Amino acid sequence: MKTTKYLRIAALCTLLLALARPGQAQIFPKSYINIDWQVNVPLGKSFADKASGWGMNFEGGYRITPAVAVGPFISFHTNLQNIDRRTLYLNDGSALTTNQKHAVFQLPFGATGRYSWLNNSIFQPYVGMKLGACYSQFSSYYYVIKQYENTWGFYLSPEVGVSIFPNPNYRFGLHLALYYSYATNSTNMLTYKVDNLSNFGLRVGISF
């Protein structure tokens, strides 16, 4: 599965960043970088409705003031759903009886902004917003066949989180965040219709 490949690449990049990190307070002054593993829970009517941990988030920002930072982000996630054997009556008048596995792969990217407090303390909370585009692939696997549709949409994701630095003078610590995301991607594949993608999730990772 493509998500497994992405997870391996992301883990390797994280390890290389940690090994290459110089012994100083911060890699880039007036900036932050987060690398997160994430759990994603689909909300509402969804093509694949099972929560999963098959995803990661990467973002960075430059502090234009001590409290405000802006920068780019990219993340990816896959959610799955097993569907029991059933008969689908298709638009062309034919019928298909099969079990299925649905998958939704999401790849949002764009700009992120955040406002943070207590920037010289161990616990540094913030609120943030991500805006951008979202590529998604809706897939249905049945028998030895994969039917899929690629779509693009607008992406919006508010979040609240905290960065935890055991030594505030040395910016390397833990990152925790809760997020909601909404994307305008839609599909009308087989007998399934989805008008948008809404998700709730948790991110856990490192911050520096």
Rank of each mutant, 00 (worst) to 15 (best):
M1V: 11
T3E: 13
Y6E: 07
Y6T: 04
Y6S: 04
L7F: 10
A10C: 03
L16K: 08
A20R: 07
R21K: 14
R21H: 14
P22E: 15
G23K: 14
Q24C: 15
Q24S: 12
A25D: 14
Q26A: 13
Q26L: 14
K30P: 01
S31E: 11
Y32T: 13
I33M: 15
N34I: 13
I35D: 02
I35S: 03
W37G: 14
N40V: 15
P42V: 10
L43P: 02
L43N: 00
L43T: 03
G44K: 03
S46A: 13
K50V: 07
N57M: 10
G60E: 07
Y62F: 15
I64C: 01
T65Y: 11
V68N: 00
A69S: 13
V70H: 04
P72M: 09
P72L: 10
F73P: 00
I74K: 01
H77A: 09
N79D: 07
R85L: 09
R86P: 00
N91F: 14
D92V: 02
D92C: 05
L96H: 07
T97H: 05
T98P: 00
K101I: 09
K101A: 05
Q106L: 14
Q106Y: 10
F109T: 04
G113L: 13
G113N: 06
Y115L: 12
S116E: 12
S116H: 08
F123A: 13
F123Y: 13
Q124M: 09
Y126Q: 03
G128K: 06
G128A: 15
A133C: 07
Y135P: 00
Y135Q: 02
Q137Y: 10
Q137M: 08
S140Q: 10
Y141F: 15
Y141I: 12
Y143D: 11
I145P: 00
I145D: 10
K146P: 01
Y148L: 06
E149Q: 11
E149T: 08
T151G: 01
T151P: 01
S157G: 02
P158M: 03
E159M: 09
S163P: 00
S163R: 12
I164G: 01
Y170H: 13
H175G: 01
L176R: 02
A177F: 12
L178S: 01
Y180D: 00
S181F: 12
S181V: 07
Y182Q: 02
A183V: 05
N185S: 01
T187V: 11
T191D: 08
Y192T: 05
Y192A: 06
V194W: 03
N196G: 01
L197G: 03
N199W: 09
F200W: 09
G201Y: 12
G201P: 06
L202N: 01
V204K: 06
I206D: 02
I206G: 02
S207E: 04
